[in-house]
């Protein structure tokens, strides 16, 4: 298997004169990538180019080792696509629909039926697998779409807003499934979502798009390496005395009620614990401040606007 999953160079795409993709070049290796961006940034268009549904006006590329110019019909055999909109085929139960999709991807019929039962069980639809899919709730349709994208055990999955319309319980289960598929199945994925918390839970790397361009590539979501002098501290008890002792240290309270302390270089972080003990408070939360994905996103979009 090739080491690069997706390789794009100078891709342009126009919708009736509007430039939806503006010279995108990127190289995606194995792993799980998040694709972020404001509405109209070109995320969905880019996914459609990767799926071969849209032909770019200019540019070269290879998807799973196949050339973009040669057409990507065959490549879609190895791609599992979970579209954002609800789609189903009326008058079919889940097993029929899932095995049918497996057959269309090239599985033998018997194998496809067997596999359909497996993936439906896996996504948590085992009890409703003989029910007509048109009677499904929106959360169940979401699971069904994941099953359809999984049935042929693809090499690359493209998930567009995988948790939309799901309630908190369902959403968490969906994210766990995605994490599990990525880990156990060594699946390569591209996940687009507006919910940064979802991306943080599932993706190792993030691409941020704006105005049809890739404006930022985060190679790691572990932002710990940022600023090591800022600490998040959660205090239980009366913080007055504790804060008094911290005079000269810049402290601010964030949304969650945590203190953000900007410690000077000569201030050993561990001495905070002694300070807490002396002033009668407990430190219940302590960690070096990290950039969140939200920070990274806002910065990347802000910079791309300034340019």
């Amino acid at each position: 298997m090739s080491e690069t999953i997706i390789q794009l160079e100078g891709i342009n795409f126009f919708y009736n004169g509007f430039q939806a993709i503006d010279g995108v070049s990127l190289s995606i290796g194995p792993g799980v990538y998040g694709l972020l961006g404001p509405n109209g940034a070109g995320k969905t268009t880019l996914m459609k180019v990767i799926l071969g549904h849209l032909r770019p006006a200019a540019g070269k590329g290879r998807i799973l080792g196949s050339d973009l110019d040669a057409g990507l019909t065959e490549v879609r055999r190895c791609i599992g696509y979970m579209p954002e909109s609800h789609c189903l085929i009326p008058g079919m139960d889940a097993v029929t629909l899932t095995s049918y999709m497996g057959e269309l991807s090239g599985m033998p019929r018997q194998e496809a039926i067997k596999r359909a039962h497996e993936v439906l069980y896996y996504v948590g639809l085992e009890e409703s697998r003989y029910r007509m899919t048109d009677t499904y709730s929106s959360g169940m349709k979401q699971r069904l779409k994941l099953a359809l994208a999984l049935v042929h055990d693809p090499e690359l999955m493209i998930l567009d807003e995988p948790t939309s319309g799901m309630d908190p319980g369902g959403r968490e289960e969906m994210l766990q499934l995605i994490v599990d598929i990525a880990a156990k199945g060594r699946m390569n994925m591209i996940i687009s979502s507006h919910i940064l918390a979802d991306i943080e839970k599932t993706c190792a790397r993030v691409l941020i798009m704006n105005h049809g361009r890739i404006v930022s590539e985060q190679q790691s979501l572990d932002f710990a390496g940022g600023d090591t002098s800022i600490f998040e501290v959660g205090i239980k008890g009366e913080p007055g005395l504790f804060l008094e002792q911290l005079q000269g240290i810049h402290a601010e309270t964030d949304r969650r009620g945590l203190l953000r302390l900007h410690l000077p270089p000569d201030f050993p972080p561990m001495s905070l614990f002694r300070l807490a003990l002396d002033t009668g408070v407990q430190i219940r939360h302590f960690r070096p401040s990290r950039l969140t994905l939200e920070d990274a996103f806002v910065t990347a979009i802000g910079e791309s606007h300034a340019r």
Binding site: H53, T73, E74, R76, S85, C87, I89, L104, S105, D134
Partner: peptide, 18 residues
């Protein structure tokens, strides 16, 4: 027409079909 109504054409076209 039913495929248009239920958005299923994209199910087909996301498979190796033209």
């Amino acid at each position: 027409s039913a495929d248009l109504k239920f958005n299923s054409i994209q199910l087909y076209l996301s498979r190796p079909l033209k």
